[in-house]
Design a protein around this nucleic acid. Structure first.
Lengths: 207, 207
DNA sequence: GAACAAAAATGAATAGGTTCATTTTTATGT
DNA sequence: ACATAAAAATGAACCTATTCATTTTTGTTC
């Protein structure tokens, strides 16, 4: 009852995911062949499709697993944020972005983002939307924490402000991921400037 | 020398584009087959590829052609903008979005956006980036006009503010295009709220 | 108008993700 | 251990975008 079947299933899935991760990282999304993942995992092509819906789903699984790991770091930031609101929000974004690029690199991310927009109704679209939602929520929670600390104007609607900050950052992230000419430093500079501009009217000046 | 060849070439290209437009509109990007476009245009599959780089390029061509048409309307708005900055910017966005959705519909747009992010280095990526740049520029020009009219604070950096407005709107647009559950009314409401929030500190209150 | 070269059209071949009918493996009851 | 059913693996077949060697058309020169 412990389940030889269960164990084998879990094993195979792990092997498939590990093979996919290695190849996506080394070759990038486009150059990676399902057949190659299958043989690296020691299964047939058909078997891969018994475990994942399709190629992009495989990429999404990697993101989801890794995000769980990053969440802790982000939550630590939220629990005890810098007193300067700009730095607080900025730090949150930079942490997320650094991790995601280190993990999978630009090429995979641009495909992930692109596919999740093009195929919103499918697995990848749904899951990515949810993934974004959690980021969105954390920003709002951080803003709430900043209000509690008295460094962000009480009267401002954190839900709305959070949404705006999230959208601006996401666009910068997309530009970073999709354009090889944009460096992480460029991204940081632009995000920092924009956070500063948007928060200026609401950030108390006593730090 | 007038060029039978030239004329035929132009004719064929037009037929291909027209066939593509009809089918993209009727069936959507994914359901449209190159073979079907070819036969509707009265040419072979290979010939289609003599005229366009690939399927997504075909979609991009439609956008480009149509945009030229919308530009006039937008420029009119910029030349004589509403005195209320929120309405001015909002009007610009709504005009663009209404046209683009009427023309090609959500499904085509989500593929266009998705592909242009995933394949930035290719034709479609480059061209779409440029397409966005022109929108970006118009917003800044509109903000400059608003400053000239004395309804937008002189001291604010229109380049930066324009970038922020552009990014927020673009994300709302992406959400609209990629999510069937989001209506045009939803989009308008959200964009309007965000424009209001962002512009509040810089918009003079004398209208 | 015949011959030649350049340009363009053609559709069969390719490639790679995805599906599916078939085969193999595992669990269960006797 | 054997029979049987359920679950899973398999790889050949499928679908489409894209490419490319070949054929056809067009322009030019004599």
């Amino acid at each position: 009852m412990s389940g030889l079947r269960e164990r084998q299933k879990a094993d195979r899935k792990q092997r498939i995911i590990a093979a996919a991760e290695a190849q996506f990282r080394q070759l990038g999304y486009e150059e990676t062949r399902i057949e190659s993942i299958a043989s690296a995992a020691g299964v047939s092509v058909g078997t891969v499709y018994n475990y994942v819906q399709n190629k992009s789903d495989l990429l999404m699984i990697l993101v989801t697993e890794h995000t769980d790991f990053v969440k802790d770091e982000v939550d630590k930031l939220i629990r005890d944020p810098p007193r300067n609101p700009v730095e607080a929000v900025f730090g949150l974004f930079v942490t997320m972005t650094r991790h995601s690029l280190n993990h999978l690199g630009k090429e995979n991310w641009r495909h992930l983002v692109g596919l999740s927009i093009a195929h919103r109704k499918t697995m990848i679209g749904e899951r990515f939307a949810q993934h974004n939602m959690t980021l969105h929520d954390r920003i709002i929670r951080m803003l709430d924490a900043l209000q509690d600390n008295g460094v962000l104007a009480r009267e401002c609607d954190t839900r709305q402000l959070g949404g705006i900050l999230f959208r601006v950052e996401t666009m910068h992230y997309i530009e970073l991921a999709s354009n090889d000419a944009v460096t992480f430093e460029d991204y940081k500079k632009l995000v920092h400037e924009d956070m500063q501009f948007i928060l200026k009217p609401y950030a108390s000046s006593r730090w």
